[in-house]
């Protein structure tokens, strides 16, 4: 029983990370109205940056702050130099552009950090397990659960309770109306892309001590982020959390009994949900 409970906790921890990824992607995709195939590469860069910075300065916590900011800056640069010129182009060219970008970023990771994956240990205080009464559980995963929860909650507060968040939600609903109200839509796009990149970066940074680092982590996570958005809906915070947790827990439970199927199950669960509810969990478009 405690084994199953531990697996469910694992599922919640990874599920929260999936939700974070999906949330970032859904902000970018919803507001900018572009398919962002570079979101996974930004996630991977977040993980690699965390490990590199943490080793360089010898402090995990500062690295956890710096790495996502680095990814956000990269995101801003990408928006400024490329994506900005593509708002009028069709989805096909936007797709090709972000896919090309993803290739460039993934290959750069291999060039900089090498093709072989490596593991990365969590900081000393978060190593080992904590006794939860019914099971021993790795401290770092508990931390990830809380950190991801806080981040999702903070994003919710930002979107629902602040003026800028309201503008962003309005931007997802109706861009023309927002710009007619005298709001600089271009600035909104840039901020949204930066914020999405930041979320991808921090998800990557938090993931590094759990899964280690390898060049394939970006594309793998990209597919998962797509699943979260397809099930949860664009710009739908609750949808992202629900979808992230469902696939996270399903994956952890299946992995316990059938390790080989642990990745396939994410997509199989999505296919089954879509068979029953083609419109996704909360019925959007």
């Amino acid at each position: 029983m405690s084994f199953v409970a531990a697996q469910i906790l694992n599922g919640i921890a990874t599920g929260m990370l999936y939700a974070l990824m999906g949330l970032g992607l859904s902000l970018v995709t919803g507001i900018l109205n572009i398919p962002n195939f570079a979101h996974g590469a930004l996630f991977a860069i977040g993980a690699y940056l965390l490990a590199t910075v943490a080793v360089a300065i010898g402090n995990f916590w500062i690295a956890l702050l710096i790495a996502p900011v680095g990814v956000a800056l990269l995101g801003l640069a990408i928006e400024y130099a490329g994506i900005r010129r593509l708002y009028a182009a069709g989805h096909d060219y936007q797709l090709l552009f972000t896919f090309g970008l993803a290739l460039i970023l993934s290959e750069s990771i291999i060039l900089i950090w090498g093709p072989i994956g490596s593991s990365y240990l969590p900081p000393a205080i978060l190593r080992g397990g904590a006794d939860l009464g019914f099971t021993m559980y790795p401290k770092y995963r508990l931390f990830v659960m809380m950190a991801a929860g806080v981040l999702v909650f903070a994003t919710w507060l930002f979107l629902e309770k602040t003026r800028y968040g309201a503008i962003m939600r309005a931007g997802i609903e109706n861009k023309e109306m927002v710009s007619l109200l005298g709001i600089d839509i271009q600035k909104l796009f840039t901020v949204a892309f930066g914020l999405g990149a930041w979320l991808a970066g921090i998800a990557g940074a938090l993931t590094a001590p759990i899964r280690g680092l390898n060049p394939g982590m970006g594309p793998d996570m990209l597919g998962i982020a797509f699943v979260v958005v397809a099930l949860g809906g664009l710009g739908n915070l609750l949808g992202a959390i629900a979808a992230g947790l469902i696939i996270g827990v399903a994956q952890a439970l299946v992995a316990a009994y059938w390790t080989e199927a642990s990745t396939v199950v994410i997509y199989a669960v999505m296919a089954v949900i879509l068979l029953v509810r083609p419109q996704g969990l909360f019925g959007i478009r």
Partner: peptide, 18 residues
């Protein structure tokens, strides 16, 4: 085909991953 636009693109990719 039950979804359109960006959802459609993401679904084709996700099922490719499956």
């Amino acid at each position: 085909v039950q979804r359109s636009g960006l959802y459609f693109i993401m679904l084709t990719f996700a099922l490719n991953q499956l």
